[in-house]
Write a protein that binds this DNA or RNA. Structure first.
Lengths: 203, 203
DNA sequence: CACCTGTTATGATTCAGATCATATTAATCT
DNA sequence: AGATTAATATGATCTGAATCATAACAGGTG
């Protein structure tokens, strides 16, 4: 287990105490793999290092309902407090997964104040980010969503994208075509200044 | 302070330890009131009992950006780990607010394991719920969002609404007109069965 | 009771973004 | 370097949800 490398992709891991590290497993997953099934008893907490995991339910008619799409970081954090999973987890893309035995994780949270505080802060940050994202997705213009993103995720009215625009489009709930077009329009009309991956609002 | 009444509207409050209860204040807010300003040092954690609070930023051009709209429960939970607020909080609607002094709240989390676990679970549940909501808002049909809601928030492919449809529409990111129409359509075509506030998926 | 306010409901119209199609450029692989 | 795949564009078309308008209805208030 190359922790320094893992920490690079997921800073929270820096604060995982040694006792917990020793029982943590790193496993490869292949597209289509089942991570857990609805009803399974909770044995692990998971962290996506690479690839994509989807949390899924199926309705009566067999339609697949995606509850969450996770491309990095923890998922199903709420399983920490429960005994059984409430949905299926499938590997949607080949990659790497961290398995934290649930009992050891709980013990670490309970006995290690520093780790616990980091965990709480991490959850709170995620809540903050997701709430802003929901507000954003409730906006209906493409331009409004872009500006809201810059304003809520950026610094000094500017963001530097760390992902391809296509991925950004899907985070904004837009087709990539709409994103390209709207960026161009906003840039042409002088609302935005675009320099490679740095996009800033112009007063 | 009528804690039993408060707990009814916000179950988490049941687990607030006595030491913390004694220093908690309940205050009325009037539409337009400032709860805190960006840059203010963090003195309290807040819980909306009644009314609406909005977390807001302003961009260079003075446009108001809503980061979060809170109608019940805690907001700005991430301020627990910080020293200054990162946005403004305004009362968008007259109501009632709980003020938890931040130091006492941190102490309670640190020393009371039960309260702490409830807090962690609460955050995790919120994350779960918000992630599902984001996935839902990324769907583009009105029908898809309705079905996704029933499937992810309901039990046995059915939900009982505890809010007016108009409010549900806004949670779904739809105009209320679209919601009414789509519900009717789905009901007519036999996909949904609607009985007052109970809406269920039909196989 | 009459009155007012907000929710539920349905119709007509408009338009923004999804979709499909097609290039061009950049990145990745062998 | 050449080949293959993915990202970045941009155009044409079309559909579905927003918007505006109007009305029935419920719930609460004086």
């Amino acid at each position: 287990m190359d922790w320094p490398l893992l920490i690079e992709s997921q800073p929270l891991l820096k604060h995982v105490p040694n006792e917990l590290r020793h029982v943590t497993q790193c496993r490869n997953m292949t597209k289509g793999d089942t991570i857990f099934r609805i009803g399974d008893s909770v044995r692990n907490l998971f962290c996506v290092v690479k690839g994509e995991v989807q949390l899924i339910r199926h309705d009566i008619r067999g339609t697949k309902i995606v509850l969450q799409r996770s491309r990095s970081g923890f998922f199903a954090e709420a399983s920490l407090g429960g005994t059984a999973y409430h949905c299926d987890a499938l590997a949607a893309e080949t990659g790497v997964l961290l398995f934290f035995p649930i009992a050891a994780f709980r013990t670490a949270l309970d006995q290690n104040a520093a780790f616990r505080n980091v965990w709480i802060e991490q959850l709170a940050r995620e809540v903050r980010k997701l709430r802003a994202q929901c507000e954003r997705l409730n906006l209906n213009g493409a331009a409004d969503r872009i500006i809201h993103y810059i304003e809520s995720e950026g610094i000094n009215d500017a963001v530097t994208l760390k992902q391809p625009r296509k991925a950004w489009a899907s985070e904004l709930g837009l087709s990539h075509e709409s994103l390209y077009r709207t960026l161009k329009r906003l840039s042409d009309q002088g609302t935005l200044s675009i320099d490679g991956n740095k996009i800033s609002l112009v007063s």
